[in-house]
């Protein structure tokens, strides 16, 4: 039996909204410790990893590990009916369940229940090594979203270079080019923290960075981690309960 109640149901809704443009079908991997999602986008360029620890839920029971295969667009349709202050209670049987039951409960006398059909999804699980990164940038999530959105009008590829003066986001395109430099700042409102061992410069597809910023409502700050010649990690922490992380393979010179 899997049964779990998330008091702030809107957090789960925001997670699905954050990933549904990248991931069509995915497994909710439920275990005693957590509910997790790991999935590549259809082009196999990026990877999405979601974690919500059991402590994020007010009641959590998972008798045995289970993978619940969902279609994110269909899940999103059901979550449209979630009230902004509603809790969600998830329920599924142990042995290859056909459906996932979700109860939406608000402060009033209304209880809504929905059943989402599940499917068998075969996925390739990638092992992501837990290695330190040469550069880690923490900045406001809405500021990162604005930068990515603004630079997209100039071109397809963004060069992110982290150096002594800060982090530079650069785009070169047919109509011209642009650079946005973000420097370390202690100001409470716009705090930017840059930890750098060595300068790093990498190229990324703006289209994917833009997909990642759909997770902006989940977190005040985004953490961007880079090392030479490996994927960038764009992390949106979900309080102390988990995260949505996006991994994007770099573009390299041929």
């Amino acid at each position: 039996m899997f049964e779990a109640q998330l008091v702030e149901g809107k957090t789960f809704k925001a997670i699905i909204e954050a990933i549904k443009d990248l991931v069509v079908d995915c497994n909710l991997d439920c275990s005693e410790e957590e509910v997790a999602i790991q999935s590549m986008d259809s082009a196999h360029v990026s990877l999405v990893a979601v974690r919500l620890s059991a402590s994020a839920f007010s009641n959590y029971r998972c008798d045995r590990p289970n993978s619940l295969g969902i279609n994110t667009a269909n899940m999103s349709k059901i979550l449209k009916m979630l009230g902004k202050d509603d809790s969600i209670t998830f329920k599924a049987e142990d042995e290859s369940p056909d459906s996932l039951t979700m109860l939406f409960e608000g402060g009033k006398s209304t209880i809504a229940d929905f059943e989402l059909k599940l499917m068998d999804i075969e996925t390739e699980q990638l092992g992501i090594p837990d290695t330190p990164y040469q550069c880690t940038i923490q900045m406001r999530a809405d500021e990162f979203q604005r930068i990515v959105r603004d630079l997209q009008v100039l071109g397809d590829t963004c060069t992110i270079s982290c150096g002594k003066e800060g982090v530079r986001f650069s785009v070169t395109g047919a109509i011209g080019n642009g650079n946005i430099l973000v420097r370390s700042s202690d100001e409470d409102k716009d705090k930017v923290t840059i930890n750098m061992e060595e300068p790093v410069e990498l190229n990324f597809a703006l289209r994917y960075l833009n997909f990642f910023t759909k997770a902006t409502p989940l977190a005040e700050n985004v953490v961007i981690s880079m090392s030479p010649d490996v994927p960038v990690v764009v992390e949106y922490p979900i309080e102390e309960f988990g995260h949505v992380k996006f991994y994007l393979a770099p573009k390299i010179e041929e």
């Binding site: 590549m40 196999h44 360029v45 990026s46 990877l47 390739e124 699980q125 990638l126 092992g127 992501i128 090594p129 590829t157 190229n203 597809a205 490996v230 994927p231 991994y247 994007l248 393979a249 770099p250 573009k251 390299i252 010179e253 041929e254």
Partner: peptide, 14 residues
């Protein structure tokens, strides 16, 4: 010219 790489090139299958 820059070419896009794939995520599988960097992480092993579990």
């Amino acid at each position: 010219e820059t070419v896009q790489t794939y995520i599988r090139q960097y992480y092993p299958l579990n």
